[in-house]
Amino acid sequence: MERILVIGACGQLGSELTNELGRLFGNSNVIASDISQPVSAISDFTFEQLDVMNADRLNDIVKTHSITQIYHLAAILSAKGEENPKWAWNLNMTGLLNVLETAKENQLRIYWPSSIAVFGPSTPRANTPQDTVMDPNTVYGISKLAGERWCEYYHEKYGVDVRSLRYPGLIGYKSLPGGGTTDYAVDIYHKALRNEPFECFLSEDTYLPMMYMSDAIKATLDLMQAPADHIKVRSSYNVSAISFSPKEIVAAIQKEIPEFSASYEPDFRQAIADSWPDSIDDSVARNDWGWSPNYDLDKMTSDILENLPALLSEFEQA
């Protein structure tokens, strides 16, 4: 029986992934952890408070709960990382190395997310290939690129079964935005349902690769459940679902809420977005382990506008 530890379980991805892992393996076999106090979304799980930079505490939790897999999601995202680069680098890198060392010592399977932030100004912007120029110019992207090299190193040198995806922007409705450059595509739905105009911090024609949270969970679990001999890439796989601009997401919302309006006031996050691809070639993931998304922009928008209203009052009280 698998025993799974989720690090960063209180975050946007972490809370939804924890619940899906509980559905697959049973809540009693999934341990949620975070540096923060537990949130209501993971109240049905055993919770351990954990600063992933504390290697001894991490090892204690792994041994206490007989952990076999770790999903390491704790990180400082792009926009917040630029506000405090040394802090972001230290947390992102030390946390990953602690997890990899624990995996080596305890023969664990590891999931660690990378990001399209590993690409940069010299990367081909359209249909960015799996193997290409990578020259990130944000501390988040630099730490993710370094992390990819460490993951492959631990697999090649020590046999660690580490697996990773380069997430595009993730869009979900079950938690608030978490400080990423692509988080405008989460906040915009909140404004639309509150009948408020939306001021976007990116220009209207800024295309970025995106993915609905349901597809992100699907991709993560598909990868982790694939046979080891199907996993040919041990740095990180490209995955893709949707590419759209702020103007296009506004148009998708207006199909259901015609009175919704948006304005555009680009800030420092525009330069971050301009260094990332417009679209991603994920043919390697499709060929190796059968990746395929379920949601396009209109289907995602309809699902969010149907389900988010029930949670708005909860967010306002938080």
Score class of each variant (00 low, 15 high):
Lys174Asp: 01
Ala318Trp: 12
Asp229His: 12
Tyr212Val: 08
Arg23Ala: 10
Tyr184Gly: 11
Tyr154Asp: 04
Lys104Ser: 07
Ser279Val: 09
Leu50Glu: 05
Pro197Val: 05
Ile110Gly: 02
Ser114Cys: 05
Pro129Val: 08
Asp34Glu: 05
Ala226Phe: 06
Ala252Ile: 04
Leu297Pro: 00
Pro197Asn: 06
Ser313Cys: 06
Ile253Pro: 12
Pro197Arg: 00
Leu21Ile: 05
Val62Lys: 01
Phe201Gln: 09
Gln37Thr: 13
Ile116Glu: 11
Glu316Val: 13
Glu306His: 05
Asn106Cys: 05
Leu176Met: 14
Glu152Lys: 14
Glu101Val: 07
Asn195Tyr: 12
Glu314Ile: 15
Tyr264Glu: 05
Asp282Cys: 11
Asn59Val: 01
Trp289Leu: 09
Pro246Leu: 07
Glu82Thr: 05
Asp44Ile: 02
His155Arg: 08
Lys104Gly: 11
Leu170Gln: 12
Val139Glu: 05
Ser40Asn: 13
Ala75Lys: 00
Met1Cys: 03
Leu108Pro: 10
Gln270His: 04
Ile231Cys: 08
Leu17Asp: 08
Thr123Ser: 15
Glu156Arg: 09
Ala117Asp: 07
Gln69Lys: 15
Phe260Trp: 01
Phe315Arg: 08
Leu208Pro: 05
Pro227Ile: 12
Glu152Gln: 14
Asn127His: 08
Tyr158Leu: 11
Glu82Cys: 09
Ile31Glu: 01
Asp278Leu: 04
Ala241Met: 13
Glu152Asp: 09
Leu311Gly: 02
Asp296Tyr: 02
Arg286Asn: 07
Arg269Ile: 10
Val30Phe: 12
Gly11Met: 00
Val250Met: 06
Val118Leu: 06
Thr132Lys: 02
Ser313Phe: 03
Pro277Ile: 03
Val62Cys: 13
Lys174Val: 12
Tyr154His: 04
Leu21Thr: 04
Asp56Tyr: 03
Asn90Ser: 14
Glu265Thr: 14
Leu208Ala: 10
Pro38Thr: 05
Tyr295Phe: 15
Thr123Val: 03
Arg286Glu: 02
Ile217Ser: 00
Lys104Thr: 04
Ile171Arg: 06
Asn29Lys: 02
Glu256Gln: 10
Val39Lys: 15
Ala262Ile: 12
Gln69Thr: 03
Val52His: 04
Ser313Val: 03
Ser236Gln: 13
Leu221Glu: 07
Leu202Ala: 13
Ala32Val: 04
Lys86Phe: 14
Tyr264Leu: 06
Leu96Ile: 11
Tyr295Arg: 13
Val233Ser: 01
Asn106Gln: 03
Cys10Val: 04
Val250Gly: 09
Ser292Asp: 09
Ile7Gly: 00
Asp274Leu: 10
Glu259His: 14
Pro124Arg: 14
Arg149Trp: 08
Gln37Glu: 15
Ala75Pro: 02
Leu305Ser: 03
Ala318Tyr: 13
Lys191Cys: 12
Asn92Met: 07
Ala126Phe: 06
Asn92Cys: 09
Cys151Ile: 14
Gly290Tyr: 06
Ala185Asn: 15
Ile31Leu: 01
Ala318Met: 13
Asp298Gln: 05
Phe268Ile: 04
Pro197Gly: 07
Phe198Glu: 08
Ala103Asn: 10
Ala273Glu: 07
Arg109Thr: 14
Ser36Glu: 06
Ser122Val: 06
Pro38Asn: 03
Tyr237Gly: 14
Ser15Asn: 04
Leu13Glu: 07
Ala74Gly: 09
Thr182Ser: 15
Asp131Gly: 03
Asp281Ser: 04
Glu148Leu: 04
Glu265Asn: 11
Asp267Arg: 11
Thr220Met: 06
Ile253Phe: 11
Asp281Asn: 14
Ala192Asn: 11
